[in-house]
Amino acid sequence: MDQAVEVKRKDRKIPVGPEMADRCYTCGTCGGGCPATGLVPGWDARKAIRAIVFGMEQEVIDSKWPWVCTLCGRCQYQCPMGIQLMKTFRACRTARDRDKVPGPIHKGTMMNLERGNNLGIPRDDFLFLLADLGVEMENDEEQPCPGFYVPVDKEGANIITTINSKEPFGEPDDMKFWWRIFYAAKEDFTVSSTNWEGVNWGLFSGDDPAWKEQVGRVIENARRLKCKTILYPE
């Protein structure tokens, strides 16, 4: 015999309000337009939302689904019932034990909290690299930029820019694109010597306190250096 499924809202790990998952009328718009449909056996956006409605959120949390979903937001943007799918799937990530977060994004987040960037690049190495790249740009064969250097911790600069740690780590020349634009525009910019990371993995690992902490640090840098504008160079 079928059993009635009874779900108490307050027992839920994922806070879905009645204006959220409960309203789903299973139209399938979300899963239909989602490139992740078919990638995780047994799951797609609609099924995950239905499972949460039926109180099976732990199964969603334990599944790969919320991590293969890229939180692109297309389903949420399209859902005729206004259900916040993307927000819900991110909440599923949050509900995972931290040691079960796949890949380096949790470790990187912890690294960032401890050392100011996701990859743990030491301050001195970073400053030396910026200095070196500045000299390279000044003397560049194809397009020299006489007078260029990377201003660090410059008080009162117009723009303070964050750095994506993959660049100093593995693709340092890619930082020059923005610097060349600044050079041509004669922009008064600066980079902070600490906590310069511009990639917030706390956002993706579902770690709200770390996410907020990192945003706070970027703002704190701008305050300390009295910069008017923060640029995430993307």
Partner: peptide, 18 residues
């Protein structure tokens, strides 16, 4: 438009085939 497929931290995640 569609996501490139590496959003939400997926570039760094161990699910390369997906």
């Amino acid at each position: 438009n569609f996501c490139c497929g590496a959003g939400g931290g997926a570039w760094a995640m161990p699910y390369d085939q997906e």
